[in-house]
Write a protein that binds this DNA or RNA. Structure first.
Lengths: 230, 230
DNA sequence: ACCTGAACACCGTTCAAGT
DNA sequence: ACCTGAACACCGTTCAAGT
């Protein structure tokens, strides 16, 4: 019994740490969606009264902020060894995979949160990749806006789709076709019937096409920047 | 007093129509945010008991779905007279402006909603623009995914920013800089200090840069499609 | 026949009462 | 000193009781 001051860990029931609260909250949101994540339900999942959670988190908003930062911590940072394009392509693919694992994070991004350390670190590394890769300050701003907009938007659209497997897609398309007024939406009908119902269709495959368009555009802008320098 | 059957309009208090409910709900969400849009508060705003709203809307989910469709109705359709690039550029700029007017619509898009007539019409016209503009079915799917991902993502990022005016941006950047550990996030500090704090900086200006990158990429893919045809 | 307000099963969070 | 459960001010929605 030394005169050790009370630590964060000593607050709350033994075994209940902030890390465990966060991990459980993320798992609950993954499994049952953001609307299932209530303080009471989370407490239940942790084997604890809802109010005990407030020992490790200021309030629900604080919990959500920390969850977003935990998600950012999962994203691969752009490897410093690779050239800017490969480095950012790698982290972009990782970013998208993480957002697919945690779709609720996209919605949470929409509410004004103040960034945690993992989020700041992520952005710092992406900035570094561009600034040391031959991008001007202005072009770096353009690049991050274009790239992250595309990734977030793709994740948002992917999350909205009510189907995942090819079979589900086909079933959904069939019912949609049956309801649609053929004369009123001719292109929608044609597109659904001949493209979406095609065997092998999966929306997820679209990601790389758009990503490479954005990266190509950035590379072109970067080259232009250096050719005018000469 | 003819034997006219009871219409939709005759349900609920006179003067309370579904259109008025929708318009009021949109205005409330614009003004005070989605979290302020409760059935009780909306009823208050309409001068009506909360339960009267259920005469014009099945439930809150139905209300939100109809609000999203009302937002889509505001977006300019791609003009059929213009070439595909100009047509889609016009509707994309309009799309982004509408999403800035109604930021809550981005979050709502994230929850799986079934599309209303204005939404279907919008997508039908965009499909038509591409399919009649020399895009194959597959490339049309690529194009819509890339374009709409970018627009939604940009709207999501713009909505997150806690500032609008240049002055607010500068103030925010100053406080952020003061809190940031200079050694831990060197690029973030450099970027904020020298670019974000530069007079005239406004995130909204980034939209057209990314949009034109995507459109350029699509045009290139379309040209490639036709050159291999020959 | 139509409307409505009390009531139900939930929220996040406060705070006083327990140990 | 620490925890917790009753309580408060909210939700969306049901439904019986009013006119």
């Amino acid at each position: 019994m030394t005169n050790k001051p009370p630590t964060q860990r000593s607050i709350g029931r033994p075994g209940l740490t902030r890390a465990r609260v966060l991990a459980c909250a993320v798992e609950l949101a993954d499994r049952d969606g953001l609307e299932a994540l209530t303080m009471r339900r989370l407490g239940e999942e942790l084997g604890v009264e809802a109010m005990s959670i407030y020992g490790h988190v200021a309030n629900k908003d604080d919990l959500l902020n920390r969850m977003v930062d935990a998600v950012f911590a999962e994203i691969d940072l752009p490897p410093t060894s690779a050239p800017w394009r490969d480095a950012l392509r790698h982290r972009s693919v990782s970013f998208r995979e993480v957002l697919r694992r945690h779709p609720w994070a996209v919605a949470l991004k929409g509410s004004g949160t103040n960034p945690g350390p993992a989020t700041l670190r992520h952005h710092d590394r992406v900035l570094g990749t561009l600034l040391t890769g031959g991008f001007s300050l202005e072009l770096t701003a353009h690049a991050i806006s274009a790239l992250d907009s595309y990734i977030y938007g793709f994740a948002l659209q992917e999350k909205t789709l009510p189907f995942t497997t090819e079979h589900e897609t086909a079933a959904m398309a069939e019912t949609m076709l049956a309801q649609l007024a053929t004369t009123e939406y001719p292109y929608l009908v044609k597109f659904t019937a001949t493209h979406v119902l095609r065997p092998g269709y999966s929306y997820g495959n679209e990601f790389l096409f758009g990503l490479d368009i954005v990266l190509d555009g950035l590379e072109r802008a970067r080259e232009e920047l250096h050719s005018t320098d000469k």
